[in-house]
Amino acid sequence: MTELRVEHVEVRYGELVGVADVSLRVAAGTAVALLGANGAGKSTTLRAIAGLAALSGGRIAWGADDISGGPAYEIVRRGIALSPEGWRLFHGQTVEQNLRLGATALADRTRLGAALERTYALFPRLGERRRQTAGTLSGGERQMLALGRALMSEPKLLLLDEPSLGLAPAAVEALYDALGSLRRKGLTLLLAEQSVPLALAIADYGYVLQGGRVVLEGPPDELARSDGVRGAYLGAGVPAR
């Protein structure tokens, strides 16, 4: 079983530091949460793993392979899919075209039909709207499509960047139901989430980021009791929810 190891990763954008020093491990079959305020480095960490952000230090290993620095279109072929912040759908194309694009990395094209059926079974709503362009979907449906598109490549590890951001409560609940069922089917998850209760409810382990560094880590019940989690949010000037 493949394990993801992020070791002392640093990402700089010119003078700006996106991530200063982040190390974490995601074992196969587990769900790991990245917690922290806006700008703590959660997104950048996920982007670095997915191959979108170049590393200026450290390394990222996927099993025995060094996957530091991408490129992104190779990383997704290795079984790591990122559903990016803001969902980044192809708004001018239909729901089904978006899903088929999600399967670009699928090596075995004969599996495409089965992957589509599985996605429509998980989100019947997407099946009803398969001919609609993605730009006409509601917020909740867009999240379903983003998740569905990421799953079309049959990833072993799914990275989710702020999946619940901007969703109505009912849509958030539907999303976490879907994530729970994916987990039970053995999908490994690494999710960045500003909402601590949501993240800790689904995760086996969590890391708290502040200023581009891991300041705290542990199982969810420990993190839930810790003052450090609250501190990490307050420290960056954003109150904990």
Partner: peptide, 23 residues
């Protein structure tokens, strides 16, 4: 066609296209 869809995907969002495996 699938190729046309990939072309349009790159046109709309280069990064998102890379994330699904398009060069």
């Amino acid at each position: 066609t699938a190729v046309g869809s990939q072309l349009l995907a790159v046109a709309e969002d280069r990064e998102a296209a890379m994330l699904v495996g398009i060069r």
